[in-house]
Design a protein around this nucleic acid. Structure first.
Ligand SMILES: [Mn+2]
Ligand SMILES: [Mn+2]
Length: 347
DNA sequence: GTACCTG
DNA sequence: CAGGTACAACGCGGC
DNA sequence: GCCGCG
């Protein structure tokens, strides 16, 4: 059960004056392991003695803001208890900037060999081979990856043990450059979800748009769920063709909000809640309530303000069953057909 | 940030 | 031993 | 066949 730290080392951050590395106390677990007494110190995976070291803490990661690597790692340490719930079981794509966002970064799908064993890998087939995605299920591993220069975490819409079947539908509202926050688009997404009996939640992306997220019972594969998402997005665009589009080409969007349903296809990913974005201001993707939509711009929350909400986070609604027939009927009402290959009687 | 390869 | 490099990638429609 | 897109 709960263990205490070795040799009476203090739990508080030990500031190594004049040293190049700092140690954080062991990350705390709260909501994920619900039977853990608050404040107990446990080491579910116990690498590095439960301590996570910050290398190069003073390296500047956000040049415009003077935000250091230490601040980034400390941020993930602080929000880990709530963020881990969003990561558990989901293949991760890491967006890493080892020298800060002023230098070039890269996306990483395969877990590096030097990642600790406590970070599980899941092997996923791809066209010419396989990808070994990393999985995170505890705060220490999240903090480890932050120390590896990860600024943003991207996740699948499915999770173990059912990686073939999404547990949510995401409608990603992408405005064009210099457009107003797509609030009406978010409300329209909520409406189509309501129309088919799905409760939905709302998230700022930390950039220019919102994600509307509808948890679903794990029952349909990516083919089905992807098609349902396409129909829903198309219905939105049919209902409000002047402000919404599913047109992939930017030139053809003509100022309209792109309803991006492609997040729901296999092997695609979407930014994870509580992730920092590699943008000026170190903004954060943050779940918010529908009541907050009017007063919350997509880039409202940031690395400084987000931890304030970690104690009382907005969480996704409970999943509902995805009623495929209802989606097809809604589509037909708007002259939206499923793809030719779609067979409603497949298993 | 780190491993690995090349010179 | 220093320096350079890799570290994603899947469509799917339109040109 | 590439390009544009996340
Ligand atoms: Mn978006
Ligand atoms: Mn998008």
């Amino acid at each position: 059960m709960a263990r205490t730290q070795d040799e009476g080392a203090p739990n508080a951050v030990r500031l190594g004056r004049g040293r190049s590395k700092r140690r954080l106390g062991p990350a705390r677990l709260r909501s994920y392991f619900e039977d853990t007494p608050l404040g107990a110190t446990i080491f579910p995976t116990c690498h590095d003695g439960g301590m996570v070291e910050i290398s190069n803490p003073d390296k500047v990661y956000f040049p415009d803001d003077g935000i250091t690597k230490e601040q980034v790692v400390n941020y993930y340490q602080t929000v880990a208890p709530v963020m881990v719930d969003h990561l558990v079981g989901r293949p991760l794509t890491l967006q890493r900037f080892p020298d800060g966002i002023g230098k070039s970064g890269f996306m990483q799908k395969n877990a590096s060999k030097h990642f600790p064993d406590s970070i599980e890998r899941v092997e996923v087939p791809k066209e010419g081979g396989t990808t070994n995605f990393p999985l995170v299920d505890n705060p220490d591993d999240l903090v480890y990856l932050a120390n590896q220069g990860t600024i943003t975490f991207h996740i699948w819409t499915s999770r173990q043990p059912h990686l073939d079947c999404p547990d949510r539908i995401i409608l990603d509202l992408d405005p064009t450059e210099d457009a107003e926050p797509p609030r009406d688009a978010a409300l329209a997404a909520r409406t189509v979800f309501d129309d088919i009996g799905l409760d939905s939640g709302l998230m700022t992306t930390g950039s220019k748009g919102y994600h509307v997220v509808a948890p679903i019972e794990v029952d349909h594969d990516y083919d089905i769920v992807g098609q349902m998402a396409r129909i829903l997005a198309t219905v939105m665009a049919v209902r409000d063709p002047d402000t919404l589009t599913i047109e992939f080409r930017k030139k053809k969007r003509e100022g309209r909000v792109f309803v991006d349903w492609l997040r729901n296809r296999t092997a695609q990913s979407a930014v994870c809640a509580w992730s920092i974005r590699p943008r000026k201001g170190a903004t954060v993707a943050m779940p918010i309530s529908w009541d907050e939509l009017e007063g919350t711009d997509p880039d409202h929350w940031d690395i400084d303000t987000a931890p304030d909400r970690a104690d009382d986070p907005v969480i996704w609604p409970d999943p509902n069953a995805l009623d495929v027939e209802k989606v097809l009927a809604l589509g037909e009402d708007h002259d939206v057909e499923p793809e030719e290959s779609f067979d409603r009687f497949r298993s």
